[in-house]
Simulated scan of single mutants.
Amino acid sequence: IAIDARVHATSATAGGVPLEDLNTTLTATAGAVSASPLAFDVFGGRFDGGFELRLGDDLGLQLDANLTGLDVARLAAFGDADGTVTGRLDATGTFEGRGQDFEGVLTSATGDATVAIVDGTIRRLNLIRTIVLFFGRPEADAPAGTEAFQRIDARIRVADGVATADALTMRSPDVDLEAEGTLDLGTKALAGRARLLLSESLSGQAGTDLRRFTLEGDRIVLPATIGGTLGDPSVGIDARAAVGRALTNELRRRLGGVLERLRQPQPAAEPPPTP
Results as ranks from 00 to 15, higher is better:
Ile122Phe: 00
Leu106Glu: 06
Thr169Ala: 10
Phe40Lys: 01
Thr121Arg: 11
Gly236Lys: 12
Ile1Trp: 11
Arg219Cys: 07
Ile152Met: 07
Asp112Trp: 08
Ala30Glu: 15
Thr94Ile: 12
Glu270Trp: 09
Asp232Pro: 00
Thr274Trp: 10
Pro143Thr: 02
Thr110Gly: 09
Gly79Gln: 13
Asp238Glu: 07
Gly99Phe: 00
Gly204Glu: 11
Gly186Met: 10
Thr13Glu: 15
Phe40Val: 03
Ala12Gln: 07
Phe134Asp: 07
Gly204Tyr: 06
Leu177Thr: 03
Arg124Ile: 04
Val243Pro: 00
Glu20Val: 10
Arg6Gln: 15
Phe213Gly: 08
Gly15Arg: 07
Gly236His: 09
Leu59Pro: 00
Gly257Thr: 11
Ala32Val: 05
Phe78Trp: 08
Pro267Arg: 09
Ala73Asp: 09
Ser11Leu: 03
Leu53Glu: 05
Arg212Cys: 05
Gly181His: 02
Ile226His: 02
Asp166Lys: 09
Arg254Gly: 07
Asp64Ala: 14
Gly228Ala: 04
Ile226Trp: 00
Asp238His: 04
Arg124Asn: 15
Thr146Arg: 10
Thr225Pro: 04
Ser36Tyr: 13
Leu230Phe: 12
Thr24Ile: 07
Asn66Arg: 14
Leu106Asp: 03
Gly136Lys: 08
Ala73Ser: 13
Asp82Ile: 04
Glu200Lys: 11
Arg46Val: 09
Leu70Thr: 04
Pro143Phe: 04
Leu202Asn: 01
Gly97Ile: 03
Arg252Pro: 00
Val158Arg: 05
Gly257Leu: 13
Asp174Val: 12
Ala28Lys: 05
Arg54Tyr: 05
Leu197Gly: 07
Leu61Ala: 08
Gly256Arg: 02
Leu255Asn: 14
Gly99Gln: 05
Gln266Phe: 09
Thr25Phe: 04
Leu185Ser: 01
Ala35Tyr: 02
Val118Gln: 08
Glu147Asn: 07
Ala242Arg: 08
Gly49Ala: 06
Glu200Gln: 13
Gly244Lys: 11
Pro138Arg: 01
Val7Gln: 09
Ile156Trp: 03
Ser34Gln: 10
Val42Lys: 00
Ile220Phe: 01
Pro138Ala: 07
His8Thr: 15
Ala179Ile: 08
Ala189Met: 12
Ile226Thr: 01
Ala142Trp: 06
Leu67Asp: 01
Glu52Ser: 15
Gln100His: 14
Glu270Phe: 11
Pro37Ile: 08
Ala154Ile: 06
Phe43Asp: 02
